[in-house]
């Protein structure tokens, strides 16, 4: 929710600290999901948006179209959002860690996502255990929007299942900012 379109392509290498520039294109934070894809959560998601598609509620339809139940494709990121708390964890486990790294690196306390692109590949099924990694694609120079002054950045999140099949790629454009005084 900015008043200026994101301009990730205008990243000026000379404005980027070397440590940030070195991360562009690098696979970071390979992770395994904390739990298998589960049917109950699929229904919870469908319920939250009143999605009555027979593909998710009728086992016969799912069997005929997709060889059994699948998750709504847009749930892709759901399977990677960590528990809010887990035993032994000493710090908050943040999803999209590269985004939070950039906020911290540039000292930008606030952030919003302005764009999100998702490409869907093989269906995700109950019982699947997904893994992911993140890739920083670009970081803009300083920008000022009605929210404040900060930077735009573009991050890919790549998802595979336990059979090493690509199931999806999400691309996020974030704007980290400091509110105007």
């Amino acid at each position: 929710m900015s008043d200026a379109p994101p301009m990730p392509d205008d990243a000026l290498a000379e404005e980027l600290p070397a440590d940030v520039a070195a991360l562009i294109g690098v696979e970071q934070y390979p992770e395994q999901g904390e739990f298998p894809v589960e049917q109950g959560y699929i229904w919870t998601s469908c319920s939250s948006v009143e999605n009555g598609s027979s593909l998710f509620w009728d086992a016969e339809v799912a069997a005929s179209l997709t060889d059994g139940p699948i998750a709504p494709p847009t749930m892709l990121s759901v399977w990677f959002r960590p528990h809010h708390w887990a035993p032994g964890r000493t710090e908050e486990h943040l999803p999209l860690k590269v985004h939070f790294d950039l906020k911290a690196r540039f000292g930008l306390p606030e952030a919003v996502m302005t764009d999100n692109t998702i490409t869907f590949y093989d269906p995700v099924r109950p019982g699947d255990l997904l893994r992911t990694h993140q890739v920083l694609r670009s970081v803009s120079g300083p920008k000022t929007t009605k929210l404040g002054t900060g930077r735009f950045w573009v991050i890919d999140v790549v998802y595979h299942n336990q059979r090493d099949e690509l199931v999806g790629v999400e691309t996020y454009t974030g704007f980290g900012y400091r509110r105007a005084a």
Binding site: M1, S53, L55, P73, T74, T114, D115, N116, F120
Partner: peptide, 26 residues
């Protein structure tokens, strides 16, 4: 995203298969 998926597949029916979505939040 879940609302958009539901909206589109209400129209296509269950044989509709999402391939790509590009959002812009304004």
């Amino acid at each position: 995203a879940a609302w958009f998926e539901r909206y589109v597949t209400d129209w296509t029916g269950p044989t509709g298969r999402l391939g790509h979505m590009q959002f812009r939040m304004k």
